[in-house]
Amino acid sequence: MELIFSLRRKEIVEMEPVVAEVKERWPALFTEAEIKEEFHRITNKNLIDDFGAGLNQHTPRLVQLYLARRTAFPPEMDKLLGRLDEEVKDM
């Protein structure tokens, strides 16, 4: 897939195909491994590492938002937040 990256990019940018056409023409692009590789080819960054770092950066604020609106979420979220509270207390 790396060898034909420029061809794929040119085709997608110039022809602007719909997702179904891209999936038909380049099915491997829709596998987890290839998504990671394509992200790396485009950005020169590791998708999972960048996502994890971003999530870690925003987690405290997300937890604050969830706690502020605790009653707006299903009981499963309340259980999850309860476990998170327990883990934080143990640290």
Score class of each variant (00 low, 15 high):
1 M>F: 08
2 E>D: 13
2 E>L: 09
6 S>E: 15
6 S>N: 15
8 R>C: 03
9 R>Y: 14
12 I>N: 00
13 V>A: 15
14 E>S: 08
15 M>I: 09
16 E>T: 08
16 E>M: 11
17 P>A: 09
17 P>G: 05
17 P>C: 12
19 V>G: 03
21 E>G: 04
22 V>G: 01
22 V>C: 03
23 K>I: 04
26 W>N: 02
27 P>N: 11
27 P>A: 10
28 A>I: 05
28 A>T: 08
28 A>Y: 05
28 A>D: 13
30 F>I: 09
30 F>S: 10
31 T>P: 02
32 E>L: 12
33 A>Q: 14
33 A>F: 08
34 E>D: 15
34 E>Y: 02
36 K>I: 10
36 K>L: 06
37 E>G: 04
38 E>I: 01
38 E>D: 09
38 E>V: 01
42 I>H: 03
44 N>A: 09
44 N>E: 12
44 N>G: 04
45 K>L: 10
46 N>D: 15
47 L>G: 01
47 L>V: 01
49 D>V: 08
49 D>M: 06
49 D>N: 07
50 D>E: 14
51 F>C: 14
52 G>S: 11
53 A>K: 11
53 A>T: 10
54 G>H: 06
55 L>T: 05
55 L>R: 00
56 N>T: 02
57 Q>P: 01
58 H>S: 11
60 P>H: 06
61 R>Y: 06
61 R>H: 06
61 R>A: 07
62 L>V: 09
63 V>A: 02
66 Y>S: 01
67 L>K: 12
67 L>H: 04
69 R>N: 14
69 R>P: 02
71 T>S: 11
72 A>K: 08
75 P>E: 05
77 M>L: 13
78 D>N: 00
78 D>I: 00
79 K>Q: 11
80 L>W: 08
82 G>C: 06
82 G>E: 12
83 R>P: 02
83 R>I: 02
85 D>R: 04
85 D>L: 07
87 E>F: 03
87 E>S: 06
89 K>T: 08
90 D>P: 00
91 M>A: 13
